[in-house]
């Protein structure tokens, strides 16, 4: 009995040794592959994970001569400070509203465009519309913000000229009136992204088996029914994946638009956590406080992604999720 156990453990350790020798062999055999991967891992360690470690700044007082990890501990001071800041609730609310507009409200628009484009039978018209609709995606937010300000300028902006020509007032200063901000923000967002967003749905519609439509036609299904019962269900996985990815991109590029469209008049609506961090952290040098607010904002983002992923998983019965 004892001998049996002994031999078993010997075998096991031998197997372990063999495995580790095998591992080493694999690594050596694939050394070029690891070499290709190495800079990538170093990159993410430095530019993604080191900043995460740097979040300790949120609990430390920043010293000009201390760098990221210097300075004395201040505990939760910056978080308390932020939550005692009277505008904090508004900032958080604005962040969610902007997120809601860009993820939920915007979401059906590119699908709608794709459906419309998919119904086109005139080839030149289709490709022309597509090319035009992709264009704004390639313009920077700086340029789009410049357009917006110019087009909506009071009196001599082209929109106000149009309103005046229709007998309206024509002197409204849209950028200064906070009540228009979300509308402007949303419309410019749609303007910039709708064409690009529709590409993927179009591609996905192109790969639908045409016999499905033919069969439906035999049954005398109307266009609407075909869209509802064939097109939409076929692109459902695409929709789900994009839904989650949209949220990911929101965290990284969402603030440019708000930053550039912000004016004193609409700041109550346009200020979100991101722009606030830029202003107090990067511009006024309150790095510790800025890092604390940034941490909160990052957590909000993380929660958004996790919750969405969970919901999508549930509703799509596990056929699509990010992980």
């Amino acid at each position: 009995m004892q001998a049996e156990l002994d031999s078993m453990s010997k075998k096991r350790s031998k197997a372990k040794k063999a495995a580790s020798a095998g591992l080493w062999k694999t690594i050596v055999a694939n050394r070029y592959l690891y070499l290709m991967l190495l800079p990538c891992l170093i990159f993410f360690a430095i530019f993604s994970y080191l900043p995460m470690a740097g979040l300790v700044m949120a609990f430390k007082e920043f010293r000009f001569n201390g760098g990221m990890f210097g300075g004395p501990w201040v505990g939760m001071r910056y978080f308390k400070l932020f939550f005692s800041y009277p505008d904090a609730a508004q900032l958080i609310a604005n962040t969610f509203i902007v997120g809601f507009l860009k993820i939920i409200v915007y979401f059906p628009f590119p699908i709608l465009l794709a459906l419309m484009l998919n119904e086109l039978r005139t080839k030149w018209f289709k490709s022309m519309t597509q090319t035009i609709s992709y264009l704004p995606y390639f313009l920077s937010w700086v340029v789009v913000a410049a357009f917006t300000t110019k087009v909506l300028a009071p009196d001599d902006g082209i929109f106000n000229q149009f309103v005046a020509a229709l007998g309206g007032d024509g002197s409204t200063f849209y950028m200064m009136d906070g009540h228009y901000f979300y509308l402007i923000m949303f419309l410019t967002y749609v303007w910039k992204n709708i064409g690009w967003g529709s590409i993927i749905y179009l591609a996905s519609m192109a790969s639908i088996d045409p016999t499905l439509y033919e069969a439906a036609e035999m049954d005398g299904a109307s266009k609407w029914r075909k869209i509802w019962h064939i097109t939409l269900p076929s692109i459902r996985p695409t929709i789900a994946i994009l839904f989650i990815l949209d949220i990911g991109s929101l965290l990284t590029t969402g603030y440019e638009q708000n930053w550039l469209l912000r004016t004193a008049g609409n700041s109550d609506f346009s200020d979100i956590l991101d722009t606030y961090v830029l202003r107090v952290g990067m511009m006024q040098g309150q790095y510790g406080y800025g890092a604390a607010v940034g941490l909160l904002q990052g957590l909000v983002g993380l929660i958004l992604v996790i919750v969405t992923n969970y919901l999508v998983k549930r509703f799509s019965k596990n056929e699509s999720s990010l992980w």
Binding site: F62, F64, N65, M282, M283, G285, Y287
Partner: peptide, 11 residues
């Protein structure tokens, strides 16, 4: 002011 702050922070 922003420039001054950044210059001080980055040495």
């Amino acid at each position: 002011l922003q420039e001054l702050t950044v210059a001080l922070a980055t040495g």
